[in-house]
Write a protein that binds this DNA or RNA. Structure first.
Lengths: 236, 236
DNA sequence: CGCAAACTTGATGTTGCTCAAGCTAGGTGG
DNA sequence: CCACCTAGCTTGAGCAACATCAAGTTTGCG
């Protein structure tokens, strides 16, 4: 479950990690020297809201979910993170959300202690983290707009487009959706049933086609974009 | 409307700005030397989503709103910012939200160019910005939970408690609420009418009392906290 | 004093939630 | 290899919360 980077996983290309990218090779070496590779099985917990923030992680492969809970169990997923994303920055000393693996996940872990040293000693390292965090903040603001002001159809359509974009290829007709309907619902601020019904509507409208359980084919991207933008159904 | 810090507003205590706080006096001097004080009247725009991100601002006094718009005009306010908050960090080069003054606002402005130099030259400056941004991210995640999973009553109660906390004194029975019902609605993902009705309900339940238009007195803080936590009305 | 903007209140409508079955796919043991 | 079992998903019917539409009322300002 836990492997020293240097010892057991020599095939990871560290130069491509968000933490190392762009730094001269020697610097990248210093950064990766203080990191540890780690694997998590689907469903496994990385840390929970309120835990001591002892580590920072970068996702190397796989998908995980970040979420917050209300006392009565209502859950809001604040993000799905795939390769290249960083999680666990917590200036207050405790994590402000919980993190769990959705698929099998490979992570690069940095101890808080090591991280502080990197920030002190490597010029530009803190700034790199600032850039990454600013991007997360931007994503968070987009999601606020979605949660607060979009309809169920707009939410689901936006979600599918987001997944498609994340998987690069604009031509990615087949999108992999590794998370369950429950996860999608808790991400979009909807119920499972509404998500399911909306998928069905998109299928009936020939906008998407549901292949295997975790695969969605985007059949009519233009229409999907119209739905996401709120032009849905009004002008047909 | 626009004043050189050194010339027209010598009474601002720069050592207390989030950008300067904690740095030795000489460093703080360097930071404030590249900044400009600026005033905005209520309703005035600082910048809009998509504009070139030429400046970073720190709020010195007053309150402003950040928001995003959908093409059809639906608005989501992503945050209300008061003294000490920083806005305008945009690694992509363009602002990802719009910013407007709610009250009269005093700002400390840094040009992008100056900011980059500060980050390069002052050790710990990028890290300071990272800390501030991490806090914003945390607030954003709290708001996602609110938008996605709380009821109207929980939202309004949480909002009032947030305003009270922001104004320091836990004993702050009288809370100043400078923003309009429309702003509150767009912040909470509700309509004006629902916000108004919820205020009325809280008033009828003797949880708050509405004094002047922009003043709310918290009469029963315990009950307000119960409402915010979702225990509302069930056990009375 | 009069006007406009902001807010409140009421009546009605609609979206998405709840509760309750059914269905399907993938895994397991006989 | 197949029948069964279960978790995850879909579908349906009814309902509640919040939105919409439409007046009123209050407040602050010229």
């Amino acid at each position: 479950m836990l492997a020293q980077a240097q010892t057991y996983a020599p095939r990871i290309d560290f130069a491509k990690l968000a933490t190392c990218r762009g730094f001269p090779q020697q610097t990248a070496g210093r950064i990766m020297a203080v990191s540890t590779l780690e694997k998590k099985a689907p469903g496994q917990n990385l840390f929970s809201e309120g835990d001591n923030a002892d580590n920072l992680y970068e996702v190397v492969s796989g998908t995980l979910r970040l979420y917050k809970l209300l006392p009565d169990g209502r859950r809001q997923i604040t993000g799905f993170l795939c390769a290249g994303h960083i999680l666990g920055l917590a200036p207050e000393g405790t994590y402000v959300y919980s993190a769990e693996a959705i698929t099998e996940v490979t992570l690069c872990r940095y101890s808080r202690r090591a991280l502080e040293r990197l920030m002190d000693e490597i010029p530009g390292f803190a700034r790199r983290l600032l850039t990454v965090t600013s991007h997360e903040l931007r994503a968070a603001q987009d999601q606020m707009l979605m949660l607060g002001r979009k309809t169920a159809l707009e939410k689901v359509a936006s979600f599918l487009l987001m997944m498609a974009e994340q998987q690069g290829s604009d031509e990615a007709v087949e999108v992999s959706v590794p998370m369950s309907r429950a996860d999608i619902a808790d991400y979009l601020g909807l119920t499972i049933e509404t998500v399911s019904r909306t998928f069905t509507k998109l299928k009936v409208d020939r906008v998407i086609s549901l292949r295997a359980r975790n695969k969605v084919e985007i059949v009519d991207r233009d229409l999907l974009e119209q739905f996401a933008a709120g032009d849905g159904d009004r002008d047909i």
